[in-house]
Amino acid sequence: MHPAFSVIFLTTLIGAGQGLFLALYTGQLYSVFNLVPGQDSHTFYGYGSLLALIFLAMGLLASFFHLGHPERAWRSAAMWRTSWLSREVIVLPSFMGMTFLYGLTHYLGFNPVLFTISDVFVVNLTLLLGFLATGLAFLLFLCTAMIYACVKFLQEWATPLTVLNYTLLGAASGFTLATVFASYAGIQLVSFYAGWAIILTSLAFISRIASLIRNSLIKPKSTMTSAIGIRHTKIQQKSRGFMAGSFNTREYFHNASAVLFRSIKWIFPILVFVLPIMILSSSTGTSSFALFALAFIIQYTGLLAERWFFFAQANHPQNLYYQTI
């Protein structure tokens, strides 16, 4: 497939935004149980949610560049019964809205106790809003990944690993971002977030390498024989029917050189996994904003390459019909 930069930015930006929100809420949950020191609602959770919202909004903005008719984008919520894209269109703004409410209630310090469970566990408003937003964040990972995983003849995508990768990669980049944010706004949580970022990045590493191995073993279901229905082992295209380009030759081929394609396959794991883990683990104990920011920038750049490779690697069966001029 031809990697579209609008979609690359959309999926990586909202992934980091979702991950950052999950990190904030994880921090709040831990502090409820007194496992980590609680942070200031106003400066930490309030501004943290704002940062997450900025990432989500940038992702949403990027998605509009993918559309031929952005002014009709509102129509895309209609087919949620059948289309994962439609579901994503509903869940993304819902998640943004819930994150906004979560951040706003924190920012204003409006946090009444709603109810208590077994007279022990006190549920207040931000805890409940965060819980709902967490559900929506995971739902959004599912919707985003299923857009690709549900297309069964794009065999590189049609696997549960796609869902796992999107979730883990988004969470990993979000927790790295949370480490950067904590080194700026909530110094006590730096090593907490850095630790989780290392764990999630390692898990994402395992899952992404698993999908790379799986994809290298794929045997394409569609062949020349099934494409034109002629039973013969030697079928060669002599003409695709036109000499100039068309949508079919632009949309489904990545058009990158084999060298570039192969090198990105090796570069992105280093940028997404190896370097950030090295930086994060070597800077625990310190709280250098610059180092953590570097780790996030490297990881995010790597994620852009990862997403590029995700699209470029998918081999569409229609390409069988467009092998030669």
């Binding site: 993918h66 031929g68 008719h69 952005p70 297309v151 019909y321």
Partner: peptide, 14 residues
């Protein structure tokens, strides 16, 4: 149609 091209990805025949 909003021109999102998703249907074209979902057609194996191009």
């Amino acid at each position: 149609c909003i021109g999102c091209k998703y249907c074209s990805w979902a057609c194996p025949y191009g």
